[in-house]
Write a protein that binds this DNA or RNA. Sequence first.
RNA 1: GUGAUUGUAGCUCAGCUGGUUAGAGCGCCGGAUUGUGGUUCCGGAGGUCGCCGGUUCGAAACCGGUCUUUCACCCCA
Length: 455
Amino acid sequence: MKPSIPKGTRDFSPTEVAKRTYIFNTIRATFEAFGFQPIETPSFENSSTLMGKYGEEGDRLIFKILNSGDYLKKVDATLLENKESNKVTSEISEKALRYDLTVPFARYVVQHQNEITFPFKRYQIQPVWRADRPQKGRFREFYQCDADVVGSTSLLQEVDFVQLYDAVFSKLGLEGTTIKINNRKILSGIAEVIGVKDKLIDFTVALDKLDKIGKEGVVTEMLSKGITEDAIDKVSPLFDVEGSNADKLAALANMLKDSEEGTNGVDELRFVCDTIANLGLQTATLEVDVTLARGLNYYTGAIFEVAAPKKVKMGSIGGGGRYDDLTGIFGLKDVSGIGISFGLDRIYLVLEELGLFEAVELPTPKVLFLNFDSANDIEKLKAVKALRENNIKSEIYPDLAMSNNQQKKQWKYANNRGVQYVISKIDNDCKFLLKDMTNGEQNSCTLTELINTVQ
RNA sequence: GUGAUUGUAGCUCAGCUGGUUAGAGCGCCGGAUUGUGGUUCCGGAGGUCGCCGGUUCGAAACCGGUCUUUCACCCCA
């Protein structure tokens, strides 16, 4: 049988793991610098926790886990007979792989509310799974790195998260990212003003595609969703909103002056933009983007999305927003949350494409003892033990060389693994023949000298 | 879910309009070198040409199906 792995999954080899670890560590350190603490939740949840939280499309993309045992036995025969997949699914599967980290977190908060001190700041770095069709930068198993705060409605949180994005991407050397920001209340206000409040989702989804399918494409899509030409005329100024964040906000304020909700949204956005403008960002740009709609139906206030530098063709490398009532679904009312997510796998692809992994080193042994004869074996083992106790990565080539070629193979092994120091021989008076592979210099030394040299 | 695309040695790929025993480079193993590498030379092993079926005297090549790869749409990190 030919070995293979499922569609949309990947193996990670040592160099890839080293690079991924570097990103993880950078994100983790920044999360902690901002005061977040880690939690972890199970890979799979009860289906009822996840289903219905991500919209119809989301439900389709959730990996369901088949019940154990004779799972068909209890299913209603007529459902099976009529091949009603959706209804049968809920009877034969009661667990599902997590689809993101936000909903499991909301569940966690409600379940552990008595142990939590609010505002609660948590971060979480774990894989998620989506039964999507893979393509560039899209996998069926990938990591999200989330930071969320629940229990505070302060807009300072929004400001904090913009800075957090900027801090992480700056540390990674990824310059020129764009943090797009919008506010759900603005979208809602626009829909209200033009009289399509009942079609908010269709409206925002269509608007979101402006930079992709253009003005005409958006109009066509809106018409097909039953939004009237009259209404579209009223929003058409949106299609051409240009200029600085302040200009855009002024234009929006004018358009939304009759909508209380819309005006609130503009005010919130203005506060965040002004504060960030005062604080300054290192490498990122904060950009008001009215067309940013990000599907997730639970966002109620700010919406974030991070775009990679323009020269890289890649979907968003981060996203997030404020949700006022996510925990409400699980029975805890009036707890506002806000959070952001980093898409590790896409960030990896972007850094790779831009050649920003130079500094990442593979954990490779520093000292290798060749195995050319079995004399003084115990001295060899003692030396390795001493080196390791001094935190020097060391190892002995396991197999004894029986021929010239096999010796050659050991030297080659040292090269291929990038070992810097090689010991080829130990004298009877415990002198080590030490060779520095970077310059070819070779000399004899005692164990103490050896440790000092390679340290 | 929709539309394209890919599939030949461990890896990267050749293989002209269907015609004998399917090739190269790298890697691997062995040797030249009584034994110090990364840049020598020689030899060797290794392939049901994704799978199933069809067309043909003859298929890696043409046709159909299926799986797989990659890309776009939908949606999303």
